[in-house]
Design a protein around this nucleic acid. Structure first.
Length: 461
RNA sequence: GGCGACGUGGCCAAGUGGUAAGGCAGGGGCCUGCAAAGCCUUUAUCGGCGGUUCGAUUCCGCCCGUCGCCUCCA
């Protein structure tokens, strides 16, 4: 069975075939580095990582994965100037965004997204030339206009020869009436027009730009950043574009329009979007007080691996609700898998059938909830130990979560305690035995009795 | 107002036109000096009302509810 992926542009699962034989090119919208990523951002990145991992380890494709860093936009400019008023606009922006870029990669590391999975993490500020070139191409094709030093994409003109609304049904008239006035933004002729290039405002960082004989110092619009970076690094069209569901419109729709208008090119074959994370049943927001970043959860004693497991054990196109209960559930479940693997022995049945079931679940638009149910069946039945372990090693790669026991050397000190306790137990000195077990526990090791002996397990093994 | 998603046992979550996987939690039991782990066992008719059908949780219509997008957003 081949891989089927839900494509937002067709609203259906489609058979996935790479454009180039065995190589898959993926572009994921990365963070805007004006803050540390929140837990909802991380869900999107973990999803992209799991898709990448399945393509690489499950489907054995060569992969080229790009995730960009948006390091120039309204928010980064605004906040960098607030934070470093003493620096020049350019220096402030750079210092500010680098700080949060580092924080971003630190979080990725914690949640087990490896930096070397990416072939590139382009910074928007390092691709200004490509953005300007695309802007120029769109303008020369007649799909852009210059207004007060800025360049806008002319949606109305575009719709005369192209479809605007590839990813979702759009009614431009409705769109217009539903949009409120943006008094403090640059005047646009049509509300749905979007900026390709924003003219310089006093005190803001800017780049020189020459268009149609006019000097237009300024900075790129948000949507053009992704079009430029993806086309330079992957070429258009590439295979898969990922992002959160909120990016469908206008961001991704605009990416499609830009490449079409400027180069007459399709952007990506597959548009894949993950649903949102809810917190305690509500959309996460600062005003509701349910806004979490990774460190908040770590401070509460939640292991990042549990968070990753929680994300991955749910389907990526389903809303998930982060709560104390749901995290506890995830922790218990993960712990149970590890316990089961730790005590697994013998077995006579081949795992082949279950492997097939697992594979089929993943091939069906990454149906991870079913895939995990198959893993549980594998643990329950009388399957051959070495085959089960091998398969879980594979699952570890695919999901980026550890299932098998750590091969940790138990310190001699702990071994001594366990020995003493075993002796005390045999002597029926249960008080001492319990004390010693408690002592080991305080050192981070759990002593469990088995049929005729005992075993030592690192806590959180 | 326009577009869309979702509503399955206490919680989470699959799934199919022919009476519903899996996980967590809970109850009972086994094992155990105790504990932990483990093992066995136990709990649903799928938001509501109609329709199509021999038969619907699964298809269609309406209603109710939750959430999202249409404006920056993973």
């Amino acid at each position: 069975m081949s891989l089927y992926i839900y494509n937002t542009s067709s609203k259906d699962k489609e058979e996935f075939k790479p454009i180039d034989n065995n190589e898959v090119k993926i572009y994921s919208c990365g963070p805007t580095v004006y803050n540390v990523p929140h837990i909802g951002n991380l869900r999107a990145f973990v999803f992209a990582d799991s898709l990448y991992r399945w393509l690489k380890y499950g489907e054995k494709y060569e992969t080229k994965w790009v995730m960009n860093i948006t390091d120039v936009d309204d928010k980064t400019i605004r906040d960098s100037q607030k934070e470093y008023p003493e620096l020049s606009a350019e220096e402030a922006l750079k210092k500010f965004t680098r700080k949060y870029e580092d924080a971003f990669f630190a979080d990725l590391e914690k949640i087990n997204i490896k930096k070397d999975s990416f072939i590139e993490n382009p910074r928007a500020t390092e691709y200004i030339k490509a953005m300007q070139d695309l802007t120029k191409d769109i303008y020369e094709q007649g799909f852009a206009k210059i207004v007060d030093g800025s360049v806008f994409f002319d949606v109305k003109k575009y719709t005369e020869s192209n479809k605007y609304g590839v990813l979702l049904n759009l009614n431009l008239d409705n769109l217009k009436s539903g949009t409120r006035t943006l008094a403090d933004e640059i005047e646009k002729e049509n509300v749905q027009d979007f900026a390709l290039w924003k003219g310089k405002k006093e005190g803001e960082p800017c780049w020189d730009f020459e268009l149609d004989g006019q000097s237009l110092p300024g900075r790129p619009g948000w949507h053009i950043e992704c079009s430029a970076m993806s086309s330079v690094l992957l070429g258009l069209p590439f295979d898969i574009h990922t992002g959160g569901i909120d990016l469908v419109f206008p961001h991704h729709e605009n990416e499609i329009a830009q490449a079409q208008a400027g180069w007459n090119k399709k952007t990506a074959n597959f548009w894949v979007h993950n649903e949102h994370l809810m917190v305690e049943g509500k959309k996460m927001s600062k005003s509701l007080g349910n806004f979490y970043v990774l460190q908040d959860l770590i401070d509460k004693g939640v292991d990042p691996e549990v968070i990753r497991f929680f994300f991955i054990s749910n389907h990526y196109r389903a809303k998930i609700n982060l709560s104390e209960d749901s995290l506890q559930n995830a922790e218990n479940t993960l712990q149970k898998i590890r316990n089961q693997l730790a005590i697994k022995e013998g077995g006579s049945m081949s795992t082949e059938e279950k492997k097939q079931e697992f594979y089929q679940a993943m091939q069906d638009d990454l149906n991870t909830p079913v895939a995990f149910s198959v893993l549980f069946e594998l643990l329950k039945g009388d399957y051959k130990k070495d085959e089960v372990e091998d398969f879980f090693k594979f699952a570890e790669k695919v999901f980026g979560v550890r299932f098998l026991p750590k091969n940790e050397q138990i310190p001699e000190k702990i071994q001594k305690i366990a020995q003493d306790r075993w002796q005390a137990k045999k002597d029926k000195n249960f008080e001492l035995a319990d004390d010693l077990r408690k002592k080991a526990l305080e050192e981070g090791y759990e002593i469990r009795d088995t049929a005729d002996s005992y075993e030592i397990l690192p806590l959180k093994q």
